[in-house]
Nucleic acid binder design. Structure first.
Length: 583
DNA sequence: GCCGTTTTCGGCCCGACTGTTTTCAGTCG
């Protein structure tokens, strides 16, 4: 039993209970969501915990603890089975239709006998929906339209960050140019750097909101306007991605971005903290509460920093705002000193056109790195086992001479002759041990054989980690977010091996990868595994990915001193060399 | 369903937009 199985069980329990209770605000639903969050914020595998230990976690009580044990011990939960019988998959699918909430769903089931999308379509065609209380012809048409684009824009549809981020940045740039606009920021799960997002949330500070709303409605990307009022417009892009734009007064921008960045659970925790201090927090600011319960004087609103300060807590960086312990830590001023882009002193997974998939020359790539002010740089072109992209021994040795020659031109930056080793199906590596010992630094990665069993994949990685010529493991699972799942591994065993052999775990900044994932990073941080944040650049335009790697690291609570490429040159070199056999 | 130096019972975050309403319910974030 894996932790993700337990988390998935709790998610399903929450969503089916939403239907049962006819409200996503139901306290039971909240309780299941909180329980899930409590487990996410705990490094241990929930399957290894007793009911008593589970109930000790904040947010998990006796009832949910016993359900988790029941699930771990028997593979099912009676309560969940009962809910599944009442809400079969066809009904759950109905609940995914935007605009069709639990109350309406119950109504159409009991009054019209609608049990699936087909029978709902039939009820719409025969104009039966409009006969129900609270529904009319307009609602009927809206739901009909929502069904038509269900595959494109269901409620649980997720978009990979690699698709959403460029679009969000474009929208922000365009809105910045609208008259009376003072500031614009994308918020939501995208700002928290979640690897997939359900929508794009954009907050605009402007003195005239109507101009902004008009600009949004007329934007080239606004394919289908879902709603548009004085302060809020939502639309779908042609690809079916929902974009929500909110406009606020400039003085409220901090409160608004904070509110729309979330997460929902983080916001709830902050609001609770506000209430505990006789104040109220909403998207317009933090306000005093008077004796009479009326909203009183404004305490903070213009910037997020001043609101956190007014709540008497440390500023929480957006990637950490997931209610997995950061609120309590910030209140106690015990947040870790997170790694930041400015701390990075080198890139250690870096290609040139020596690799078949590299597109810039060695000289171009090195010059670009030098412009970042890096102190060291590992050139890690592919080893020979990656048939199309790799280099044989002769080519590698020539490459080494070129790197050594170029190194002379960069007195402030050390160029390392490196390699991206390919981890074979059984954990084998390129060349032989003697030849590999010639490299100054290596990153070993999986590029093929994605369909082996979890045990085989785990063993394969452990074998590579144990090799003394390996400094780091690149893009841990080989996933492409939303497109290819990556290999299945036993994370705990791999982390244990990384720790034991003192090999660094890469956080790959390519948006399609973000691998190791932030959830794995958090566990690695807890286990004391060293981290390295890389761009895996194949072209001079890709060095900016470092920011994405850093945000992923922050999401995993990675402290600066645990990331080896924040270390000063000498300290880093000592670590890089300490287990390498000297040729 | 969870929680507690005011509580083992009575609370539990807050607001925008829409449609079908004459003051509010449902949905969503």
């Amino acid at each position: 039993m894996e932790r993700r199985d337990v988390l998935a069980m709790l998610s399903e329990l929450a969503s089916l209970t939403t239907l049962e209770e006819e409200s996503p605000q139901s306290f039971k639903v909240r309780a299941y969501e909180n329980a899930r969050q409590a487990l996410e914020g705990d490094a241990r595998n929930p399957a290894d915990l007793s009911a008593t230990e589970l109930a000790k976690l904040k947010g998990i009580g006796k009832s949910t603890a016993s359900k988790i044990r029941e699930f771990v011990d028997t593979g099912s939960v009676a309560k969940l089975d009962t809910l599944r019988a009442t809400y079969p998959p066809s009904v759950v699918e109905l609940s995914r239709i935007p605009g069709l909430g639990p109350k309406t769903l119950k109504l159409i089931r009991s009054e019209l006998g609608v049990e699936d999308v087909e029978s709902l379509k039939a009820a719409i065609d025969s104009e039966k929906l409009r006969t129900l209380p609270g529904l009319g012809a307009t609602s009927e048409a809206k739901i009909s339209k929502a069904i038509d684009r269900l595959g494109l824009a269901g409620k649980d549809r997720r978009t990979p960050i690699a698709d959403a981020l460029p679009l969000a940045e474009r929208l922000v740039d365009d809105l910045r140019r609208v008259d009376t606009v003072v500031d614009v920021a994308f918020c939501g799960s995208l700002r928290r750097f979640s690897e997939t997002v359900g929508d794009i949330d954009i907050t605009v500070a402007a003195t005239d909101g109507s101009l902004v709303m008009e600009a949004v409605r007329n934007h080239i990307e606004a394919n289908d306007i879902l709603l548009s009022g004085d302060t809020k417009t939502s639309f779908l892009t042609a690809a079916g991605l929902q974009v929500d734009v909110r406009v606020v007064a400039p003085a409220e921008f901090g409160a608004a971005t904070m509110y729309f960045t979330g997460s929902k659970a983080h916001n709830i925790a902050l609001r609770q903290r506000a209430i505990d201090r006789t104040s109220i927090l909403n998207e317009y600011g933090l306000f005093e509460i008077g004796e009479d319960g009326e909203t009183g004087a404004l305490l903070a609103s213009a910037s997020e920093a001043e609101i956190y300060e007014a709540l008497d807590m440390a500023f929480v960086p957006p990637p950490m705002r997931e209610a997995t312990g950061e609120v309590d830590a910030a209140a106690a001023d015990e947040l870790p000193e997170l790694v930041e882009v400015s701390h990075i002193r080198g890139d250690l997974h870096y290609h040139t056109d020596r690799s078949g998939d590299g597109r810039s020359t060695l000289a171009e790539m090195v010059a670009e790195a030098a412009s970042k002010g890096y102190e060291y740089l590992a050139i890690t072109d592919h080893g020979e086992d990656l048939a199309i992209n790799g280099s044989n021994r002769e080519e590698m040795l020539e490459h080494r001479e070129a790197i050594r020659a170029l190194d002379v031109d960069y007195p402030d930056m050390t160029l390392l002759y490196g390699c991206e080793l390919n981890i074979g199906p059984k954990g084998g590596l390129d060349y032989d041990a003697e030849f590999r010992a010639l490299f100054d630094y290596t990153v070993a990665s999986v590029h093929s054989h994605f369909d082996q069993s979890q045990d085989e994949q785990t063993a394969r990685l452990v074998a590579a980690i144990a090799d003394p010529t390996v400094n780091s493991i690149g893009h841990l699972t080989g996933r492409y977010i939303g497109r290819r799942p990556g290999i299945e591994i036993d994370v705990d065993i791999v982390l244990e091996a990384l720790f034991t052999f003192d090999v660094a775990l890469e956080i790959n900044g390519a948006l399609q990868r973000l691998d190791a994932a932030s959830s794995v990073v958090r566990r690695a941080v807890d286990r004391g595994v060293k981290l390295v944040i890389n761009t895996d650049s194949h072209h001079t335009s890709e060095l900016g990915r470092m920011e994405y790697g850093v945000l992923t690291a922050q999401r995993g609570w990675a402290p600066r001193d645990q990331v080896v490429n924040t270390w000063p040159h000498d300290e880093f070199m000592e670590w890089a060399n300490h287990r390498r056999p000297q040729p």
